[in-house]
Design a protein around this nucleic acid. Structure first.
Length: 579
RNA sequence: GCGCGAGUAGUCUAGUGGUAGGACAACGGCUUUCCGAGCCGUUAACCCGGGUUCGAAUCCCGGCUCGCGCACCA
């Protein structure tokens, strides 16, 4: 029942592929035997294998190839983090529901639209506005009491009343709050990247569309910390002529090189462009189709509360264009906020190329005079004097401390003018964040790979996954399901497994039926043990996409398979064609 | 969260108040078996809960899931 309902009226691709994904063990509805719950999926053995391969490829692209590391932080976060990050306030919407027609609106949107008032997102404020203006629903009905909904899952940590916590809505925050340690790890040198692959949670109001909008989902995020004035990447030159489809925030479509896009100001800077290129490369290598991939700039009202500029990679699927990656320039928003809220200095010291000599005027408080006069205020006043950088007029300076003004006579401090050597400055780095939705990418790969063709007059369903992405890499098939074929197949299977290949043996049903089975789940190569195997120690390797076969020596099998799986080379290069 | 529609073996489906059937798949045999062959056999289902009824897959109510539209998606 579950599958059938998934596949109504979305065209053939949807029908066939969803049915296959469930039946063969790619994706299952979570909690199925208890009736299920929207917004959660289980990865079956094949789906899990595919996603793991995607993660492996991602690491190669965004960790190993960059000055970057991977960390792992808790999926539960204490309340303070998300107050600082803005998720507690920005991630909460106040909703109003009409008593009469039952429509629900986001209160701030509705009030702005009808009254033109910018609203604080609090229940009290919304209530005030509702009664002050007697705001009604479009149908004329009154609104019920406004309600908060926060898209984060909340929880209590510890016994009794406990401490408030939330399941993280993105993996990124775990990285930002480790920034001091990370900067230290990187010996205080920008740029550096930190990534995290893991689960994140959003309590979606109404998750739909299968794996596209989940309440628990998999993210791979890279936070790339840079000097605010140096949003460049040494490898950008490689991608200057990389042609790409861009849709800008005015919905203008461009098919241009990244170099041009940066020069024309469509993309804000080279670093964003670099990550757009790397993302495109990654997605194509993972198996998305180039003509079903584009990059779209967020509109001004679409951007998250932290983002300065944001580009989405979008894949075309039977659901339409769906966001699979967000590449955002988050500026210094996150570090600045955590700096404020935690009172930890999250800046980094950037030495100048040449130390700079500056004439500095230093105000030095005379504590022996300040103390007796100002008593408990002494400390604050001394600090204010040290921080003062204005002029002295009429023999005094004016300080403002916590809203109060103090006139301080020049007897309370000394002025020292001296030349200082400044070696650098402290800056809060900016962060460029490519954030990948692994579930959506996995699904898009499956859709883009799914194909049917005709072999010997019969329709065949074949998943044309990239070889290195397939969850089952090799199937070992004895031509006949009896000895000595089966025991030979067992022997070869064991050898291939030990060599690190994801291998399955299958002796059930006719050989043709078994080829179809592995075509359907995307296994790129089948090794067949036939009569000739016992004459000259050769086996056949069959290529999924062409169904052609070659014969290779048993001793060569591992080497040949390894080369095939790491490249897109033609099978025919590796042995004598068979049949 | 609202409205409309749907839910029968692993999958697709027949059954509209009286024994739940088929196809494909899976599994075990037989067959010197290289592209979904054949034959024999086996496993296997009415989404969950309540109600109406002598009797409910079928009718009614509620829930869950899925699809579509609205709303939401930082």
């Amino acid at each position: 029942m579950r599958v059938k309902n998934l596949i109504i009226e979305r065209g053939n691709i949807m029908t066939d592929i969803t049915e296959m994904l469930v039946r063969r063990g790619y994706l299952w509805q979570s909690f199925e035997i208890y009736g299920g719950m929207a917004g959660f999926v289980d990865y079956g053995p094949l789906g899990n294998g595919l996603r793991r391969n995607l993660e492996k490829l991602w690491r190669e692209f965004f960790v190993i190839s960059e000055r970057a590391v991977e960390i792992d932080t808790p999926t539960i976060g204490i309340e303070e983090i998300f107050i600082a990050s803005g998720h507690v306030s920005s991630f909460t919407d106040v909703a109003i529901e009409c008593e009469k027609c039952g429509k629900i609106f986001r209160a701030d949107h509705y009030i702005k639209e009808k009254l033109g008032i910018e609203t604080e997102e609090t229940i009290e404020f919304v209530n005030e506005v509702l009664s002050a203006y007697d705001l009604r629903c479009e149908c004329g009905g009154k609104f019920k009491e406004p309600e908060n909904f926060n898209l984060m899952f909340s929880t209590k940590i510890g016994p009794g009343k406990g401490k408030n916590g939330y399941l993280r809505p993105e993996t990124a925050q775990g990285i930002f709050i480790d920034f001091k340690r990370l900067a230290d790890y990187f010996r205080e040198k920008l740029p550096f990247g930190v990534c995290q692959i893991g689960r994140a949670y959003r309590n979606e109001i109404s998750p739909r569309q299968g794996v596209i909008r989940l309440r628990e989902f998999n993210q791979a995020e890279l936070e790339y910390f840079v000097h605010p004035g140096e949003k460049r990447h040494p490898e950008f030159e490689k991608y200057r002529d990389f042609t790409i489809t861009l849709v800008d925030k005015m919905d203008g479509e461009h098919n241009i090189t990244l170099g041009e896009a940066v020069e024309k100001g469509i993309i804000a800077h080279e670093l964003l462009a670099y990550f757009i290129a790397r993302t495109a490369e990654f997605l194509l290598k993972a198996g998305l189709k180039k003509d079903k991939l584009r990059f779209r700039q967020h509109k001004d009202d679409e951007r998250a509360h932290y983002a300065v500029d944001c580009w989405d990679a979008e894949a075309y699927t039977s659901y339409g264009w769906i966001e699979v990656v967000g590449i955002a320039d988050r500026g210094d928003y996150d570090l600045t906020r955590h700096n404020q809220y935690s009172k930890e200095d999250l800046s980094i010291f950037i030495p100048y190329e040449e130390p700079v000599k500056v004439k500095a005027k230093k105000f030095i408080p005379k504590m022996n005079l300040i103390g007796p006069k100002f008593r408990e205020k002494s400390k604050a006043i001394a600090e204010a004097i040290e921080a003062y950088n204005g002029e002295v007029s009429d023999g005094k300076i004016i300080l403002e401390i916590e809203g109060e003004k103090y006139e301080i006579e020049d007897t309370f401090f000394e002025i020292e003018e001296k030349e200082e050597v400044v070696y650098g400055e402290r800056v809060i780095p900016h962060v460029i964040e490519p954030s990948f939705g692994l579930d959506r990418i996995t699904y898009s790969i499956l859709e883009h790979s799914f194909d049917t063709d005709i072999v010997d007059g019969e329709e065949r369903r074949v998943l044309r996954l990239k070889r290195w992405m397939s969850p089952v890499q090799v199937a070992v098939l004895p031509l006949l399901s009896r000895d000595p074929f089966v025991s030979k197949a067992d022997e070869i299977t064991l050898k291939l497994k030990k060599a690190g290949f994801f291998t399955e043996k299958d002796d059930s049903g006719s050989i043709g039926r078994r080829y179809r089975r592995y075509d359907e789940i995307g296994t790129p190569f089948c090794v067949t043990i036939d009569h000739q195997t016992f004459e000259d120690s050769t086996v056949t390797i069959r290529d999924r996409d062409s169904t052609r076969q070659i014969r290779v020596k048993e001793g060569e099998l591992e080497r040949v398979l390894r080369e095939l799986l790491e490249s897109e080379r033609d099978l025919m290069e590796f042995g004598v064609p068979f049949k």
